[in-house]
């Protein structure tokens, strides 16, 4: 299903295709018309993609076909060995992780996992983890520390699951513990926000030395819909909330919440997932190279200082 604001582009693309088809089958020379429409298409794309609103970016961040953690693992990494379970209660399909190679480097990977279709989305609870998911993440962090392998995390969740069972099993407690566990890593940690960075459920695997974000991903303390429901008392005001929350990659870079933006192909990562994944891989390799020079203690201190410095207040 195309996004609402993409429709004019898709319609124009379709008309150009049709004209080309007509030209081919009838032999009529439509070169001039086609060129005119292609110029119009270029202008239209520039107009739309060049001026995306925060709310449009939120929609891109959720677009079907956008690369998920497993897509990135499959294409940017080699020999991914998935590990399951929290050794206490269950295996949470909303968080995946395991051992992998990034070029010549052994790494441990953990990430939220949304479904790539409705059936898988139901199984993976739309990427909203339960406590066992965060306990699995902490297990993987332990592994990274134990063997000295870098930890790479992929963030893509609307938020930790708000439900009775999650509360019974201490959702708040495991998120706090996961933040603490990741903060204490003595290995390089890199987080990449692939799509949605929804609140504490995202931060739980986001306490990294470097936090990278895809161009159209978002990261904030609350989703625009929930924010609108509380502050505007109407979830339909989500576009306004998206604006106010300053949740886009550019805004977050200015606030120093993220360290770098990974470019997406024109129209968003779902238009050319392979290109987007390649960009993620290049950014990871660059960042890893930078962090490899630091000692275990220096990595801890670097991360500590990074988060210690965030915030805006006045001394008085």
């Amino acid at each position: 299903m195309p996004l609402e604001f993409e429709k004019p582009i898709l319609e124009l693309e379709k008309r150009i295709q049709e004209l080309k088809e007509t030209a081919r089958t009838t032999g009529v020379d439509l070169e001039a018309e086609i060129r005119l429409l292609e110029e119009r298409l270029a202008r239209l794309k520039q107009e739309i993609y060049g001026h995306l609103t925060p709310w449009q970016r939120v929609q891109l961040a959720r677009a079907p076909g956008r690369p998920t953690t497993l897509d990135v693992l499959e294409k940017a990494f080699r020999d991914f060995l998935e590990l399951h379970g929290d050794r206490a209660f269950a295996d949470d399909p909303a968080i995946v992780g395991g051992l992998a190679y990034l070029e010549g480097e052994k790494v441990v990977v953990v990430g939220h996992q949304k479904g790539r279709d409705t059936k898988e989305n139901l199984r993976r609870n739309f990427g909203m983890p339960h406590p066992e998911g965060y306990r699995k993440a902490m297990r993987l962090m332990d592994l990274a520390d134990r063997f000295g392998y870098p930890l790479i995390s992929f963030i893509d969740t609307p938020g930790a699951y708000p439900g009775v069972s999650a509360e019974e099993r201490g959702q708040a407690w495991v998120i706090a513990q996961s933040i603490q566990r990741m903060g204490r890593l003595k290995v390089p940690a890199i987080a990449v926000i692939l799509g949605e960075g929804g609140s504490g459920g995202a931060l739980a695997i986001g306490v990294a030395n470097r936090v990278l974000i895809l161009e159209n991903a978002w990261y904030s303390v609350i989703s625009p819909e929930s924010c609108a429901a509380i502050l505007w008392r109407d979830a339909k005001e989500a576009p306004k909330a998206a604006e106010a929350l300053k949740l886009t990659a550019q805004d977050l870079l200015a606030l120093k919440v993220v360290d770098a933006i990974i470019p997406e192909p024109e129209g968003g990562a779902h238009k050319d997932p392979d290109r987007a994944i390649q960009n993620v891989k290049e950014a990871l390799l660059r960042t890893l190279e930078e962090l490899k020079a630091l000692s275990p203690e220096a990595l801890y201190q670097d991360r500590y200082r990074r988060f210690r410095a965030l915030g805006a207040y006045a001394e008085s």
């Binding site: 931060l203 904030s220 303390v221 949740l247 977050l252 919440v257 988060f307 210690r308 965030l310």
Partner: peptide, 16 residues
């Protein structure tokens, strides 16, 4: 909510 991502970052700051 009105400090959005900066509020979120306070969770990591305080914990660390």
């Amino acid at each position: 909510m009105q400090e959005a991502a900066l509020s979120l970052m306070q969770m990591a700051k305080t914990v660390m």
